[in-house]
Write a protein that binds this DNA or RNA. Structure first.
Lengths: 272, 272
DNA sequence: CGAAATTTTGATCACGTTCAACTTCAGTGG
DNA sequence: CCACTGAAGTTGAACGTGATCAAAATTTCG
């Protein structure tokens, strides 16, 4: 805790608001699969209605809410979860820098999951309506949204495999690798270590295990020298072995196809 | 098996190819949340490169393939699954009429899941490239794709809750309701009964349970008169109770916002 | 009709839960 | 500076659920 975080590029270096925007993890992510001009980005940023700092433990969405916003995470962790009748809790996904809060909640009549901040966070919010307006005017954003959503699908699918058929050891290995890999994609991790800024209880609710068992499993991962844990910092000692154990494969999205010329030939009559 | 299926509208009634196209379950689904003109639909159908009948047990996608198509299901069931190292199998989602095979596989460098036909199927296929072209020309399709993908996210999320924290009885109840509800959305089910055209082994791989346990659980659901099972036909005897047991809530997508006038006002300069 | 797949039932066992106690640590106030 | 507090991490013992293995019954299909 005393040493600085190597993964979070210190915000002071980016005083120019344009630079900061272009280094936003959400933008970093989108640019991984679609080419967005600075002009495009300006239009995107024009939609932002509020920029806010939010304290740890804040409820951002409550299961049952009607919510119609897209909220881009610049910094911090959150969890999307469902509280069951019997008091149990299942975390469906961790929300990291570059993710969108309000996905899928804003697209349904009523949000099916709650979202809570696990750490202090920094967020930019726009209305779903405005974003859709942008998609009509600049179709690349509709495609970007599709690609983004499909990445979510792939991540969620992996969680199903995790909770459905993987052993606790494999599950944990997979989850740690997934989080690291996603942080990396958003430009928020490097080296082979990162910070898990939450308790083992949270981990257990993500993995569908009990807290003691997560603890023991984490112990085994340490004992067998796959990882090192120091406070809330995790180091990968043998990534290859860990990836094999967790059957982990990093997600690689194909780029959104670029249409040469104006618009694809088969589409023809664009407007009336 | 001797009686006719009430849910599948007999294809003979729709001889006119235009009518048949407009009654395609994929179209039915899209029209649930976005307004598509017949003109739009014509453009969509122009993209279709092949229409095929496929036999039960066919492998449609194999984990690791490079696949770049969108394949719309008109009839039949398939399963998207992952085979694990130890021989276990997790079905991540059932693919029903109105679904897209190639989601998420076509959007990744390499398909992360296999897809196999569980029954004979009828499919229409277009290339991802062409579809993206259509999205550039008619942004409503990009939005439709986003909405579609987000519906997948919501379905997958529910599967995570299922395998992570629900008891086997709750899981099974939830899955049955989900399948019924999705068939209904595609216009392929009504009344309170439907056909599950696959074995209990398939069910077990979807639920993350063993075959004997699925069998016993199914027995309990029958014994306690939640459902009736006759061959592969399932009847809901008490939907309310079943929904409470499985904590099931039907998905309701919000309609894609309609932009009044030409294009949303804030977007301004449409073409540089 | 025979072969294979599927469903059903039973017995045993292991894994992970549950519950409980104890430790460690960070933060806070005396 | 130390005592107190509460949260989080750790460990242990007992229990129960669902897996596993095996076999029988039933259905499906060639």
């Amino acid at each position: 805790m005393s040493k600085q975080n190597p993964e979070s590029s210190s915000p002071d270096e980016l005083r120019d608001p344009c630079d900061r925007r272009r280094a936003h993890p959400f933008v970093t992510r989108l640019r991984g699969y679609i080419d967005l001009s600075n002009d495009d980005l300006d239009f995107l940023w024009e939609l932002i209605e509020t920029e806010q700092m939010v304290k740890k433990r804040t409820d951002l969405i409550v299961d049952g809410d009607e919510y119609r916003k897209l909220c881009f995470v610049e910094e911090g962790f959150a969890a999307r979860y469902r509280l069951l009748r019997n008091g149990k809790c299942q975390i469906v996904n961790f929300i990291l820098p570059g993710d969108i809060i309000g996905m899928p909640g804003s697209f349904l009549d009523t949000a099916p999951y709650s979202v809570a901040a696990l750490t202090d966070m920094k967020l930019q919010t726009c209305s779903l309506n405005d974003f859709v307006g942008l998609c009509y005017g600049r179709p690349q954003f509709g495609l970007a949204l599709s690609w983004f959503a499909i990445q979510e699908v792939a991540i969620y699918a992996e969680h199903i495999v995790n909770t459905g058929r993987r052993t606790p050891l494999e599950r944990l290995a997979h989850l740690l690798l997934e989080i690291y890999s996603r942080l990396e994609m958003a430009g928020k991790a490097s080296g082979l270590s990162f910070t898990l800024p939450f308790s083992q209880e949270v981990l257990s609710d993500a993995l569908g295990l009990s807290v003691p068992h997560v603890n023991r499993t984490l112990g085994k991962l340490r004992l067998e020298e796959f990882i090192n844990v120091d406070g809330r910092r995790v180091d990968f000692l043998d990534v290859k072995a860990l990836e094999k154990l967790g059957q982990f494969q990093a997600l690689k999205l194909t780029p959104v196809p670029v249409m040469q010329g104006n618009i694809g030939p088969r589409v023809g009559a664009l407007r009336g």
